[in-house]
């Protein structure tokens, strides 16, 4: 009961925050919640299975672009549903084609997927609709977007908590460890991977869709910015992709650092970013949380 009440209190505080914060503060909180959700959703699949997905921005962009295209013709909630369905379908096709093969094919395919989707959308816009770039006019303020993202984050975490108590988590970790052993224990490896990849991709698509109204003007190069895939990955890895709270623990310091860097070193942003990432791969291969746990155990060991 206690953690439940504590959780409610934290969610309440976070939901109340934009009412007292200024625009900048709300914007910061919004961005942070967006990345926390992205990283958590990413880790939901890639953490246990160790299939590194570099396709985050492909789905994020699909979500954002769907909103840009449909926001004037359909009611907003329906637009979100359509976006989620498109994300789901794309992830199922990509997953079916690549997840049966060795992990490295999946990584490579996901690496280029964003570029493929971006070029295809650009081609479609130029040749079929004859426009490149769209305006989104939705009566949504920053705090409305933030509340939706917060709800999505809570939902994602609840799914994560539920998953860890159910057999699917065991199957996912087993798939990450040894697919052959998992298969002979009765796990339908392909379906398990596909289901989780699709779930994770759908949540990522929704983050893109919800955040889209923040830009009033949208074009493929804006919403398919590969930095988003990159940051999501870095955050999840820094915090620890195998842990429920890992991605959020990684997202908070890194998001603030990136905000500060892009404000102060706009030109050298990408260089510093890449450097930090290489350092993370070297210094904390299993993430901060795992590192903290081993430190904790060592301390306990010393005390005994």
């Amino acid at each position: 009961m206690k953690p439940f009440l504590f959780g409610l209190l934290v969610i309440g505080l976070l939901a109340w925050a934009p009412l007292v914060l200024n625009d900048y503060g709300t914007g910061l909180l919004l961005g942070l919640t967006g990345y926390a959700t992205l990283a958590t959703a990413w880790a939901m699949f890639s953490g246990p299975t160790r299939y590194v997905s570099l396709a985050t921005v492909a789905f994020f962009g699909i979500g954002a672009y769907t909103v840009a295209v449909l926001s004037e013709t359909l009611p907003y909630p329906l637009v979100l549903v359509v976006a989620a369905l498109i994300g789901l379908s794309v992830s199922l096709v990509v997953g079916l084609a690549t997840l049966r093969l060795a992990g490295v094919y999946f990584v490579i395919f996901s690496f280029g997927l964003a570029e493929l989707v971006r070029q295809t959308v650009t081609w479609y816009e130029v040749n079929v609709t004859g426009t490149l770039g769209r305006y989104i006019f939705l009566p949504l303020e920053a705090r409305h977007i933030y509340w939706q993202l917060l709800a999505l984050l809570v939902l994602t975490l609840l799914i994560g908590i539920y998953m860890r108590k159910s057999r699917i988590w065991l199957a996912l970790v087993a798939v990450g460890d040894d697919e052959v052993a998992a298969r002979h224990a009765g796990v339908d490896v392909t379906r398990t991977k596909l289901a989780l990849f699709a779930l994770s991709a759908t949540i990522i698509t929704l983050v893109g869709a919800i955040q889209a109204p923040r830009w009033t003007y949208v074009e493929p190069t804006i919403v398919f910015n590969p930095t988003i895939s990159f940051l999501t990955l870095v955050m999840a890895l820094l915090g620890g992709a195998g842990k429920l709270w890992g991605p959020i623990v990684g997202a908070i310091p890194l998001f603030l650092l990136f905000e500060w860097l892009s404000a102060n070193f706009p030109n050298h942003y990408s260089i510093i970013l890449g450097g930090i990432f290489i350092l993370i791969v070297f210094a904390v291969p299993n993430g901060i949380l795992a590192r903290l746990e081993t430190l904790g155990q060592r301390r306990k060991g010393e005390a005994q």
Partner: peptide
Amino acid sequence: ARTFQLVRSLPSLTLTENVLISAAYGR
């Protein structure tokens, strides 16, 4: 059910979980 010529364990999991997987997904 089968065992393997070279043992296939699931190193991220505990002993119980290594066996549990087959209880959860087996017959």
